[in-house]
């Protein structure tokens, strides 16, 4: 447990060593605020549904950008080889890296709390859906992170990790889209609808947190972290 914390601390600190983290959070906030407030005044409704509706799309680009360097950089610099000779288990390293990127994403998401504060000044929103929406966004973000980290563990090239990350999360997001479900054979649609990252966010977007959606996102995180441990262990199979 302690080793996980040490790895997470080191990884988290490395986000903030360069100015990239600050630029990143700023861009994230500017883009989401701009897109949200564009429609907000037209709707004239004191809620954040529009904001949470944006997040799955913004995360498609934002999350792979967080995770792309995580393994790719260490593989390229060969520091991973050294790290794996230290008395750490593969699971500890994987979970430590996940926690660091999760903490970073959470900070970025929480920095957007200025939006509910603004809305509260303009009207009287129902806080339940907003709190639920934030919790759901963090959960969904965690699932995207686990996928992005797993992809990063397969390459030495950060750009490839980013692009493949965007594509894979996009596909996983789109397969539960109504258009896809209509076109798919009838036996496949319920499966796609369950696997897809998007469907589970629909109720969260409305402010309803269903335990099934929580279980879904947590299992996606667990599954991809497991795959990540496997891809580290693959060095042993050659």
């Amino acid at each position: 447990m302690e080793n996980i914390f040490i790895i997470a601390k080191k990884e988290f600190r490395s986000f903030f060593i360069s100015p990239i983290a600050y630029v990143f959070i700023t861009v994230y906030l500017v883009v989401t605020n701009f897109l949200f407030f564009q429609g907000f005044f037209l709707n004239n409704q004191a809620d954040m549904r529009g904001y949470f509706g944006l997040l799955p799309w913004v995360f498609l680009f934002f999350v792979p950008a967080i995770t792309m360097r995580s393994w790719a950089e260490e593989k390229k610099a060969k520091t991973l080889e050294l790290m794996l000779t230290w008395p750490l288990s593969d699971v500890e390293v994987v979970v430590g890296k996940f926690i660091a990127s999760f903490a970073f994403l959470t900070i970025a998401i929480l920095a957007s709390l200025t939006i509910p504060v603004t809305i509260m000044m303009l009207g009287s929103p129902d806080m339940g859906p907003i709190i639920g929406g934030y919790a759901g966004a963090i959960l969904m973000g965690a699932a995207y992170l686990a996928i992005g980290l797993w992809i990063s563990s397969h390459t030495e090239n950060q750009i490839i990790a980013f692009i493949v990350g965007v594509v894979v999360t996009f596909v996983l997001f789109m397969i539960s889209n109504p258009f896809v479900l209509l076109a798919a054979p009838s036996w496949l649609s319920p499966i796609l609808s369950y696997i897809g990252l998007g469907r589970h966010f629909e109720s969260i977007e409305r402010g309803v947190i269903d335990s099934r959606d929580i279980v879904y996102y947590l299992s996606v995180v667990g599954f991809f972290l497991f795959l990540n441990v496997q891809s580290l262990a693959s060095r042993k199979w050659e």
Binding site: S14, I17, S18, A77, K78, T79, E81, L82, T85
Partner: peptide, 9 residues
């Protein structure tokens, strides 16, 4: 290790 990998940042 050979090449001495280090965290440059």
């Amino acid at each position: 290790p050979e090449m001495n990998p280090l965290y440059n940042d």
